[in-house]
C-alpha cells in the first residue's frame, strides 16, 4: 500500500511536470536546436560548416556591429546600474517629500510602450527638439548630436531600464534592517564603508538579477536602435532584421541569433553561479 501511494504520487508529480516540460521543449529547446542547425548551413554554399560564423567575425561591417553592440550594452548596463543603485539607496534612506514623489513616479516609464517612448525621445532631444529650442531661448545655439547617435541609444536604454532596476534594488534594500545601518553609523562608519560593507553585500544577489535583466534587455533591443540609432554601425538586433528581411539571408541571420544567445548565456552563467552560492 505504501509503495502504491508513493508510485501514485510519483506519477502525479510527473504528470504535473509534463505540460511545462513540453512547453519548454517545444517553444525553447526545439527552436534553439533549429536555429543552431540553420546557422551551420553555409549561406553561399550548401554544406554544413562554420562559414557563416567566420564571416560574422571577418567582415568588417559585421565585426564593427558586434563590437558596437557590446559597447552599447556594457556601457548602458553599467550606467543604468550605477544610477538605479544610487536612486534605490536614496529612496531607501532618504526622507522628505522629494523621496515620496520619486517613489510614486519613478516606475511610470515602464508603462509607456517602447515606440511611443522612442518618438518622445526624438521629439525631446532631436536636432530641432524641445530641449534645443529651450536652450536657444537662453542663447545657447549649439546642441550636441544625441538622436541618430551612440549617445541617444544609451540615453534610450537608460530610460527603459532604470525604473525596473530601481524597483528590483529597492525591494532588496527594503530588507536591509535599519538597526544594522544605525549601529554601524554609531560605530563611526562613513558613507563609503556603509555602502560597500553593509548595503552592497546585503543586496548583492539582487544586483546580479538587475544586471542580467538589463544586459539581456539591451543586447536584444530593436525598436529604439532602429528608430534612433546610427545607420552604421548598427546593434545586432537591427542588423539581424536587415539581414533576415532585406537581404533574405536566413542562415547568416540565424548565426547572428546564436551569437547573441551565446553572449546572453555568458551572462546567464554568472547569474546562475551567484544564485547557486549559499543558496
Amino acid at each position: 500500500m505504501m509503495m502504491n501511494a508513493s508510485v501514485k504520487k510519483g506519477i502525479l508529480g510527473l504528470a504535473l511536470v509534463i505540460p511545462s516540460f513540453l512547453i519548454l521543449f517545444f517553444v525553447v529547446i526545439v527552436p534553439i536546436v533549429y536555429a543552431i542547425r540553420e546557422s551551420l548551413i553555409d549561406e553561399n554554399g550548401s554544406g554544413f560548416g562554420l562559414a557563416n560564423y567566420i564571416r560574422l567575425f571577418t567582415e568588417p561591417t559585421m565585426r564593427k556591429n558586434i563590437i558596437y553592440t557590446l559597447n552599447v550594452t556594457i556601457v548602458s548596463t553599467l550606467l543604468s546600474l550605477v544610477i538605479s543603485y544610487s536612486l534605490a539607496v536614496y529612496l531607501r534612506f532618504g526622507h522628505g517629500w522629494v523621496v515620496k514623489w520619486i517613489n510614486r513616479l519613478y516606475f511610470i516609464p515602464m508603462f509607456v510602450p517602447g515606440v511611443i517612448a522612442t518618438y518622445g525621445l526624438i521629439t525631446m532631444y532631436g536636432n530641432h527638439g524641445w530641449l534645443s529650442r529651450l536652450l536657444l531661448l537662453i542663447g545657447i545655439d549649439t546642441f550636441p548630436k544625441i538622436i541618430y547617435d551612440y549617445n541617444g541609444l544609451v540615453l534610450a536604454n537608460l530610460w527603459f531600464n532604470i525604473p525596473f532596476a530601481t524597483m528590483l534594488l529597492s525591494s532588496a534594500l527594503a530588507a536591509v534592517p535599519n538597526s544594522v545601518i544605525e549601529s554601524a553609523r554609531d560605530a563611526g562608519a562613513n558613507i563609503g564603508q556603509l555602502f560597500f560593507r553593509f548595503v552592497l553585500p546585503l543586496s548583492y544577489k539582487t544586483m546580479w538579477v538587475a544586471i542580467t535583466f538589463i544586459f539581456m534587455g539591451v543586447i536584444g533591443s530593436f525598436t529604439a536602435p532602429f528608430l534612433i540609432g546610427a545607420n552604421s554601425p548598427q546593434v545586432l538586433g537591427v542588423a539581424m532584421q536587415q539581414v533576415f528581411s532585406n537581404y533574405q539571408e536566413t542562415h547568416t541571420a540565424s548565426a547572428m541569433a546564436v551569437l547573441m544567445f551565446l553572449l546572453c548565456s555568458v551572462m546567464g552563467y554568472f547569474y546562475i553561479r551567484t544564485m547557486g552560492k549559499e543558496g
Binding site: 517545444f26 517553444v27 525553447v28 527552436p31 534553439i32 539581456m216 536584444g220 547573441m260 544567445f261 546572453c264 548565456s265
Partner: peptide
C-alpha cells in the same frame, strides 16, 4: 533571448 524565443514561438502557435 529565452524570452524572445518563447514569445515568438507562442506567437507562431497563436
Amino acid at each position: 533571448m529565452f524570452n524572445k524565443a518563447k514569445m515568438s514561438m507562442l506567437l507562431i502557435l497563436g
